[in-house]
Design a protein around this nucleic acid. Structure first.
Lengths: 268, 268
DNA sequence: CGGCTCATTGATGTAGCTCAAGCCTGGTGG
DNA sequence: CCACCAGGCTTGAGCTACATCAATGAGCCG
């Protein structure tokens, strides 16, 4: 069956300003008296494509007083399945994986979140999934109560949240097709295609040409994402490499010379 | 691979007041001048647990002027994958199945909707899934534009929509675990357990005691839901019957003498 | 250098698929 | 009334895609 998830219990980041390595990863904001957008938000993708895009500069300034920027190292567990949470967060960088585990240790990854995704389960005090930093991750954390009151002031924020949730639902259903009906070869191709489209920095080439990127997941995690074993992932990767559909540099770095050709392997 | 979906193309119900058998299935509302809730809404579950619960009697009255009640026979396709839609609906009775199909005909059911679920994809003109009446279905249909304007007046309606969407996302992720990591035996048990909890009329017994119900899906549909074949479904049902975990009357009617015992077979 | 973790590759086992035959139920028509 | 048929379901016999088990390699760090 599936590999046991080795979860580095490390909940400290939620409570305190340091992670257990002792690094200071929080930086509580100073008041920023500008008429415009808070400095801390100026570079943030969440302000454009994320839920903060719904806010006026003024509202943004008020929100930013309750946020803190946190860093979570790769492998760190952010929220445990069925754990109480009192915070939400925006993903500012890196990749967060959401997973579910069975009592005997079988594990399934049920979602990946990239910047500027919102992280959390509104209207429910406990999470249904485990959230873990798949890579090093930067988060903008804020208390549940803050979002709740912002939503009342700015209903368009709830709208953004609805939009993202619908998008996640679309993605989840797409993956259900992959999990239920695709072959191992199609699954691996689908995964690589998804990452290529999602991550490639030159994302003009979204649907054409080539892409190069680092896989945010290990082979074991890819296996848990696709509902297959690590060995099968490895064999399918080798097959794709031998047919020239992908080029591997080391074990993490992947080049896709022809994204369309890869897409043709996904079965869809 | 999966069975080909036999879809009875029948889009007439969306456009006109009759289905293709000629029965009149629409009943455009009369104005109802009451100070209270419109007659047509009084029995409707959507008014309590569905999205209409967000509305005042007054708003409800206005909405009800734009709705029409429709009946769709078992097997009828309501919305095609990637089809343009200009309407939403509430499920008032029966079961709607949402599915996705691959070019070669492999099919995966990605969701089931029961009363009083909302049916449709806000903020997007085309659907990502096929919606089909799994049983005979009663719907309350209204134009997209109506919902859009109601949402502006009553932001709590958007809130309800968000709540349902989050619930669907939870369900989808739960099902991803089932599809990716459970054995065929666990899949079938999980399906029966889900239906037992969802459908059983005496749903006090949600977590205890016994339940009896009619399966809303054929063996083939169950297979498409679980990502296995019809033969495997059949074999697992027989196994459950022989071990006494379920009792079958005919092929559709199922009794579960001990729901907890069934739950223990789901692997979770 | 030894001891990690992660990945690859090979040999073998098996859960679930495929193919094929037969059954049961309800509807239709003679 | 029965004969027939069609669609859905069950059961069996073999096959195969993927899992499991096991050995080895490749990078990384103390």
């Amino acid at each position: 069956m599936a590999a046991y998830g080795q979860i580095l219990a490390a909940r400290a980041w939620m409570a305190a300003g340091t992670d257990e390595s002792g690094k200071i990863v929080s930086d509580q904001r100073e008041d920023i008296h500008t008429t415009g957008v808070p400095v801390v938000c100026q570079q943030c993708e969440a302000r454009h494509k994320g839920i903060c895009g719904a806010l006026t500069p003024d509202e943004l300034t008020r929100l930013s007083k309750h946020t803190s920027k946190r860093h979570a190292a790769h492998g760190m567990e952010l929220v445990g399945e069925s754990e109480e949470t009192e915070s939400y967060a925006n993903v500012m960088g890196g990749v967060v994986k959401l997973s579910k585990m069975m009592p005997d240790g079988r594990q399934q990854i049920v979602g990946l979140q990239f910047a500027p995704d919102f992280l959390g389960r509104p209207f429910q005090s406990t999470s249904n999934v485990t959230a873990e930093a798949a890579t090093d991750v930067h988060l903008c954390v804020f208390p549940k109560s803050t979002l709740d009151s912002m939503m009342k002031e700015a209903p368009s924020m709830e709208n953004r949240l609805l939009q993202q949730t619908l998008k996640e639902l679309d993605d989840a259903r797409e993956w259900m097709l992959t999990l239920g009906r695709k072959t191992a070869a199609e699954k691996v191709a689908s995964f690589l295609f998804m990452i290529a489209v999602q991550i490639d920095p030159t994302h003009d080439a979204e649907r054409e040409g080539s892409a190069t990127f680092d896989l945010p997941l290990t082979r074991g995690e890819i296996a848990d994402f696709l509902g297959i074993t690590i060995e099968t992932v490895s064999r399918q990767m080798t097959k794709l490499r031998k047919t020239g559909l992908i080029v591997l540099e080391g074990t993490r770095r992947v080049s896709v010379p022809d994204i369309q050709a890869l897409r043709d392997e996904t079965g869809v």
